[in-house]
Write a protein that binds this DNA or RNA. Structure first.
Lengths: 195, 195
DNA sequence: CTGTTGTTAGACAGTCCTGTCTAACAGTGG
DNA sequence: CCACTGTTAGACAGGACTGTCTAACAACAG
């Protein structure tokens, strides 16, 4: 068996496999609903491998969320870069990404919102990881909106963030109907009204 | 011990106590996180009392959500009645109710959204109970908006519903900041823009 | 009075959960 | 070559979970 390098971000093949497998199962069924034994069986890893990389299940969950957050940020930045300089095109590209997410067959709501639902206490590490991610979401949106001719883009960014959160929840609850289209229409109306 | 009448809605003192206690604990900590033993200890009831009224924990959860849904609907109807005929006043009263909810010290997000997060599969009875509630929420909003001079109030109702869902999630995630104010401002802007 | 229903306390089965520990092995760095 | 790290399989402890069952009692209906 190959021994693993130790890059400063702590990424190793087994660790990554653990996180990927854990995410898939947690996202499908829920954090409390999935036990570590299930994850280990699915990933075909031994229990000590998990407890070598993480001190507890909770730490694994935090790592899962952080990895997912990094992945999402990367993807969004790539899409915005591809969309070019037009603020309107950038905003539409931003929504288009969600559209793809919503209609993927694995879609099961927002993993971060679901994490907060299962770890409602704000002081828990899991909840804190979600806060970090959602804050960076809002920051991205604000930066995106600063391209428009709006006096104060900050409140608009927050409003659109609410629309997207709502669309994520609504699409999951009702099984993916027209939530995102409503959110996009409302967002465009708000941007227009803010001129 | 007093024997209990059996009204057609199935409400009895012990059953109600079970539901109320279960709601409090589920809402504070989560559905999977709270065991029935904890609920029974808190309510000071025997296990057989629970399984006399409900076939399973899941059935108890459904009953909890249905009771909560009825309670919310009742409250909203009362508030709208009190607000009088002015559509704008009614909408503001609607938001004011959420404001009170958000700033209550027990606030811990939306119990229905959290239920969906823990029961992500749409085919489960719990998830279905949430769908029923959220649909009636949208219906109420649509009726409320039909008072305005709007050509098609339906999409606006959906948009405002998204804002409120988003505000519920955001307030819980970040610990109750300005989410609802943003939602209200956006809602008023959308109503204005729809004229 | 008698039968029925709601209730109680507690034992119990059977499963699942997290986390620890051991013993053995493979590959790498020094 | 030796020490170290990552890994494996599996046993294990200790607890928590849902749901069942029993035996006894209380209140009411007929």
């Amino acid at each position: 068996m190959l021994n693993q390098r130790k890059p400063r971000d702590g990424s190793t093949p087994k660790r990554d496999l653990l996180i990927a497998t854990a995410f898939r199962l947690f996202y499908r069924e829920g954090f409390h609903a999935v036990g570590i034994d299930t994850i280990l069986a699915e990933a075909q890893l031994a229990k000590m491998t998990l407890y070598h990389h993480f001190a507890s299940k909770e730490e694994l969950i935090v790592a899962v969320l952080e990895q997912r957050s990094a992945l999402v940020k990367e993807k969004v930045q790539a899409i915005l870069k591809e969309a070019g300089p037009s603020p309107r095109k950038r905003l539409l590209a931003y929504f288009a990404r969600y559209e793809a997410f919503f209609s993927s067959k694995e879609f099961n709501g927002c993993p971060f919102i679901r994490a907060v639902a299962e770890y409602p206490d704000i002081d828990t590490p899991v909840h804190q990881a979600v806060i970090r991610h959602k804050q960076s979401d809002i920051d991205t949106l604000q930066e995106l909106l600063s391209g428009f001719d709006i006096a104060d883009p900050k409140p608009v960014a927050h409003q659109i963030a609410l629309l997207i959160e709502g669309a994520l929840v609504s699409a999951h609850t009702f099984g993916n109907t027209s939530a995102l289209a409503h959110a996009r229409n409302a967002a465009l109306a708000l941007v227009k009204a803010a001129h």
